[in-house]
């Protein structure tokens, strides 16, 4: 770990001001940042500790739905009675990630900002455009079993590792950003950028901006959800493929559907074409199968991760069938 300046700030303005410095990063729970600093993948000049900001509340929004402060710990969010009741898919997703110790420490904002687990990114020496712009991608012709098949470019196919964010994407969550003149909200799907030729640009976050909250829109009565994750071991492991599905039901008809995929794409991945097939439909295995096929249409697998395409289809199929059977009170 390299020497850095450390600022413990008390106000958002202070934090915003300090993060404009080149090489400044924000410290919240630290479960990912400290790891990255110890590996010397991230070598910040300054660390701005925002843990004393009052951003650890979960509140209802006047328009319905909830506002989750960005410093709310992952465990607190997952076990919050309203979240468990209203957004079980979010609880399930959070609890399927990391370990209890990590979830107790990690924050919502930190979870959104966590970096990829691509082994070449993390080894500090292999060519990697995400780490060292312009050096290329070692995974492309190297080992890429855990890599993405959706949204990839020649310069990067690293996955976004979060489970929570997959559920947030299926819930149409909005990211609240503050620090510049205008407070703004960005839909989570637009918050993450595609790697294209600039894989080092990962989010829409601008200098001086800080994630202060995540807004969850209200779900209509009768919505059924499911988070399904497949991985190589039973716990404490990132997804090979995961899916969060949110189905708005009216009687036995699906009114609207939202499907987000994890472990298989460069960012929490929505599949609008596939979702459309489910709008105003009667659930059936055949329909779900068509939906799964459609979701994976743009997949570009490579040698080691070819299996993810088939696996993802099955995960979608199974998640849809599980969700449609889950009755919400």
């Amino acid at each position: 770990m390299k020497p850095f300046r450390y600022h413990r700030i008390k106000t958002l303005q202070e934090a915003s001001h300090l993060t404009q410095e080149p090489g400044a990063v924000i410290l919240a729970g630290g479960t990912n940042l400290i790891d990255m600093m110890r590996l010397e993948i991230m070598n910040p000049a300054a660390v701005v500790d925002i843990q004393s900001l009052p951003l650890n509340q979960i509140e209802t929004l006047p328009s319905g739905g909830f506002r989750i402060g960005s410093l709310v710990r992952n465990s607190d969010l997952a076990f919050h009675p309203s979240i468990q009741k209203e957004y079980p898919v979010l609880s399930q997703a959070i609890l399927s990630g990391a370990s209890p110790q990590i979830r107790n420490q990690a924050t919502v904002g930190g979870n959104l900002m966590q970096r990829t687990r691509c082994t070449y990114f993390r080894d500090g020496i292999s060519p990697c455009s995400k780490r060292n712009p312009g050096t290329g991608c070692s995974a492309e012709h190297g080992y890429h079993r855990s890599h993405a098949v959706l949204g990839i470019s020649d310069s990067c196919s690293a996955t976004h590792p979060s489970d929570m964010c997959v559920a947030l994407a299926a819930l149409d969550a909005q990211i609240v950003l503050e620090g510049k003149k205008e407070k703004r909200t960005v839909p989570i799907t637009e918050f993450y950028l595609l790697p294209q030729n600039t894989p080092w640009k990962e989010t829409a976050l601008e200098p001086a901006e800080i994630i202060t909250a995540v807004d969850l829109p209200e779900l209509p009565e009768g919505t059924r959800t499911c988070y399904l994750k497949v991985r190589d071991r039973s716990s404490y492991e990132f997804a090979l493929v995961s899916a969060a599905v949110v189905l708005e039901f009216n009687q036995n008809q699906i009114q609207k559907a939202r499907i987000a995929l994890g472990g298989i794409a460069v960012k929490p991945w929505r599949v609008p074409e596939a979702e459309k097939l489910l709008h105003h439909s009667t659930p059936s295995k055949k329909l779900f199968q068509t939906c799964a096929e459609t979701a994976l249409k743009g997949a570009k697998p490579k040698k080691d991760n070819e299996f993810k395409v088939e696996l993802a289809k099955r995960v979608i199929l199974h998640a849809l069938s599980l969700a449609s059977k889950t009755k919400k009170e």
Partner: peptide
């Protein structure tokens, strides 16, 4: 091993899996 460099790609406990309690 990386097929080009001969370095161990799974040189950490994130990429080299061992059973956890749940297994």
């Amino acid at each position: 091993y990386d097929p080009r460099t001969g370095r161990v790609v799974t040189d950490n406990l994130c990429d080299y899996l061992i059973p956890v309690m749940a297994d």
